[in-house]
Design a protein around this nucleic acid. Structure first.
Lengths: 177, 177
DNA sequence: CAGCAAAGAGAGTGACTACTCACTTCATCA
DNA sequence: TGATGAAGTGAGTAGTCACTCTCTTTGCTG
């Protein structure tokens, strides 16, 4: 297996583990073990743990952008926004990406992580803006509901049957001007 | 100083530090030092680090509820919701409570923390429901925009002058259903 | 086959950190 | 006055963890 292939599979594991535990709460040893390599070799693939985390953050945002582009397809305007919203709700099923996003926000005390997270969020914002073309108020409403889904995923509200929890997890209203 | 008074002042420091670094990223030593006590004594005031974190989580949500109650005052309905929204925007100035909330969500992998966070969020939800009486869709919109402010605070978007960042930080629209 | 570069691991190391034990100081009060 | 108990600490301890040094293996090429 080439180093680049290894890097890719290590990254996949890292995203999952960091999504659960965050930067400080995840050890490089468990990432290495789950990726099937020794822990010293992980440090040849990624120079520091923070570097790996930064790569995970960038990868998560980039993947979300691609996910949205696919969902929007040839649509535009409100229909595109609605399609993107539905595709975001899909992500609630495998919570990894939403949790990883949340860990990125929570780690923003570190300047490097803050920079990467801002860039990732800005690209996401601009992607939805470009794909849908809706006015900024609707855009803000879309992202607001997205963030609500992030924390709902973190608390695992979809697995609760209580009424308030079900209300939180409903899809965003379609007419949002 | 009585042990209870100490506990209170330690808690105040703990909220600030945990808000920055999260549970795993904050050492008990810096909390003790900033609180002006020895680190062993911290463990007489709070049995474990996680216990202190849980107390910080509960305190943060409880304080937010009180903050909202004060903001709503004698109002009700949409005006109450608007007043609460404005008071939430105030919290953007001292970011501690918003960041602490975010750290609570991000630490929800731990079952105890998840339970405390769910309870805190549910109480917050019910408080706004009770104070405003607005329908659940408006309630969801309110919390959605609140979560957007949380992550905006984390990324420190209000300190940026770029247009997209300013758009994210605007107040929620007043007519929301 | 010789030589070489890249993939990969074993065995550390030093720094940190949650938590403990044994101890001191001091105010209160029977 | 002497006992009690609460506030508070110095000096550990056991364990974890990011990161390194050095070594082996393996596949390729001249």
């Amino acid at each position: 297996m080439t180093a680049d292939e290894r890097r890719t599979s290590v990254l996949a594991v890292a995203v999952e583990e960091f999504a659960r535990g965050g930067l400080a709460g995840t050890s490089t040893e468990v990432i290495a073990k789950r990726a099937g390599i020794s822990q010293p070799y992980l440090f040849r693939l990624y120079p520091t743990k923070k570097d790996l985390f930064l790569t995970a953050v960038r990868d998560t945002f980039a993947r979300t952008v691609r996910h949205f582009e696919q969902a929007a397809g040839e649509l535009g305007g409100q229909p595109a926004l609605k399609a993107i919203g539905l595709s975001y709700q899909e992500l609630l099923r495998d919570r990894t990406y939403l949790l990883m996003q949340l860990q990125a926000y929570a780690s923003c005390t570190d300047p490097d992580i803050r920079a990467a997270t801002r860039t990732g969020f800005r690209n996401l914002w601009r992607a939805v803006e470009r794909l849908s073309g809706v006015p900024s108020e609707a855009l803000r409403g879309f992202f607001a509901h997205g963030m609500l889904m992030n924390v709902a995923a973190a608390m695992d509200l979809p697995s609760l049957s209580e009424e308030w929890a079900r209300l939180v997890c409903l899809a965003a209203p379609s007419a949002e001007d």
